[in-house]
Design a protein around this nucleic acid. Structure first.
Lengths: 209, 209
DNA sequence: CAGTGGGCTGACCAGTTGGTTATTATCCTT
DNA sequence: AAGGATAATAACCAACTGGTCAGCCCACTG
């Protein structure tokens, strides 16, 4: 699919190998030697180029984030473009992102915050323009909205298994399950207010205690 | 918060320590010695009780799943009780679950499948009873619905940071952000069908190619 | 009381880990 | 062609990994 050409610079080859392996097994689960082997390189060269394992991890973070930002030109996300790029990203990148968010690196946290902010602005604009519903708590809604859109990054494997889709991360599969998501975002799931009412009852009860 | 009493059996102490550490750092990132140290026990004892690291991991899985099932009596989840238990679970258990789903152990996969099935039945019943909207793809909707409810397990850290909540995993915080979720599930986010229409356009274009 | 079996440990093992160093190969530049 | 950098390697290191083993300790049971 996107195997590296032989003449690709070793540094980039190492980074790609790390991306794949880190995403699949987690950073702590992958040795520098394993990365080196996949990049067809001595393990000392990895250290030579990146200084340490942590350095390699940071470079992977930076690279993936630059992909999401859509190139070196974009400094701050304007709308939901970053989200879209994330969902369309190739398999290894998606898996890596999922891990990064769960591991909670500072870089991933900053990216998450940025996406939530951009999304909140966009939804606010949508409310003004009439295509988005107003919310009682726009900040929390934006956060939840982003979290849900990102959820397939973490749970993609299960999603694809349950839906019987062969490759969890390709575009066709994404398209298939995203329809159900859009449906919920358009019509909701609940037909009446009883869940909302129940929530308010619980909240009131807790506040009383 | 839930520190172990001194007279707790060593076996359970080890399991709890493993649960905490595995959840926080990932299974591969935690050594048996670290687990042993936190349980105040020699690392040989861990092997004595669980045979291997993999054995310990399996025991953690089984324990957490039994918690979600709500006790040894429950064999198959009846409704969304498992989901509720999961969302109310204490911090370490939540983190562990998030990891388990991302790592894709067979036990976690089975649990996920089971929850999706139970939820699909429940939503189907809801449609019949009138409190849930019908869906064009009930199976996919149930899968997405579950995935979204589970998303805070994986992204809870970021969610709490963005919302300015101190402790990501306590019940009050869960209550706060879940309101926004219920709001979306009740009213949706989009005010009209244009997202759905756009999706259909993309799908048609791809099918044409 | 003897003994016996399980909880528990320290010492040990071979293999792996991230990282260092000295050395060689390969490339530009002038 | 000479020179200086940079790419790349093999050999090595101390620390740590999961796992084994012989044996201690101590509560039971006969």
């Amino acid at each position: 699919m996107w195997s590296d050409k032989d003449d690709l610079k070793a540094r980039a080859r190492i980074r790609n190998a790390a991306l794949e392996l880190f995403g699949a097994e987690g950073v702590t689960g992958v040795s520098l030697r394993a990365v080196a082997a996949r990049a067809d390189v001595s393990h000392a060269l990895v250290l030579h180029h990146f200084g340490s394992k942590e350095g390699l991890r940071k470079e992977c973070d930076a690279y993936v984030i630059s992909l999401v930002r859509g190139g070196p030109g974009v400094e701050v996300l304007e709308d939901t473009a970053g989200l879209a790029a994330m969902l369309e990203a190739a398999g290894p990148v998606r898996r890596y992102l999922g891990r990064a968010f769960l591991d909670g690196t500072p870089e991933a946290a900053a990216l998450y915050d940025e996406i939530v902010e951009a999304t909140e602005r966009r939804l606010e604009q949508g409310v003004a323009e009439g295509w988005a519903r107003p919310s009682q708590d726009p900040h929390a809604r934006a956060a939840i909205y982003v979290t849900w859109l990102l959820a397939p990054l973490a749970f993609g494997e299960h999603l694809s298994r349950v839906l019987g889709l062969p490759d969890l991360h390709d575009m066709d599969a994404t398209l298939r399950y995203s329809r159900a998501g859009i449906e919920i975002f358009t019509d909701g799931v609940f037909a009446d207010d009883r869940a909302l009412t129940a929530w308010e009852a619980v909240g009131k009860e807790r506040r009383a205690r």
